[in-house]
Amino acid sequence: MNNDAVLEGLKKAVVDGDEETCKDLANKAIESGMDAYEAIMDGCGAGMAVCSELYDKGDIFVPEILMSAEAMYAAMDILKPHIKVEDVGKSKGKIVIGVIEGDLHDIGKNLVKIMLDAAGFEIIDLGRDVPADDFVNTAKNDKVDIVAMSTLMTTTMPGMLDVVRGLRDKDIRENVKVLIGGAPVNEDFVSRIEADAQAEDASKAVKVASRLIEELRG
């Protein structure tokens, strides 16, 4: 099996949510001396990118995405220990992600994390019910490019404003983009709290995050 066939196989297995085939092909990639980073990005990541497009078109829904994610992570668990030293830390950008304080609904955040992970971003996941200070301190200490926050509840939306203010107070607002999401979030709210962008769903989050990184790096 040549490298192209392995990559194509991984891509298809991720789209199909086929965990066993993903594991099998990941092992084959390692055995054949294939570049692990390439297998992750051009095999698994490419598969999730297809899932993202299908989700965007309404051809697949959340259960299919979760199946694909399981398959992808099964392959990545095998491939990651074999990433070359020069590829470690290689990423499209560093993102701290979490659900804002007071809200424990994290399915949406987890879907966004899956998509960003698959697209090659480095993710720091703070989980749910995250205080504003934790976002701000992580942004500063880990020198992240994007702070990504979500909430399902209207009540907890003001917490996002606290994060934006916190970034400003620490004098790092100019170095960090703020991406927000969740059911009650819209463009009007982005303007009100002076965030940078919103993503309507997980599939759009990758495109928006990529654009924000480009803006940041000029």
């Binding site: 424990l104 009540t155 003001p158």
Partner: peptide
């Protein structure tokens, strides 16, 4: 279950 404190709007499953 966590009963609401702070900005939590309602009890939430933890």
């Amino acid at each position: 279950l966590k009963m609401p404190v702070g900005r939590m709007a309602a009890p939430a499953m933890i």
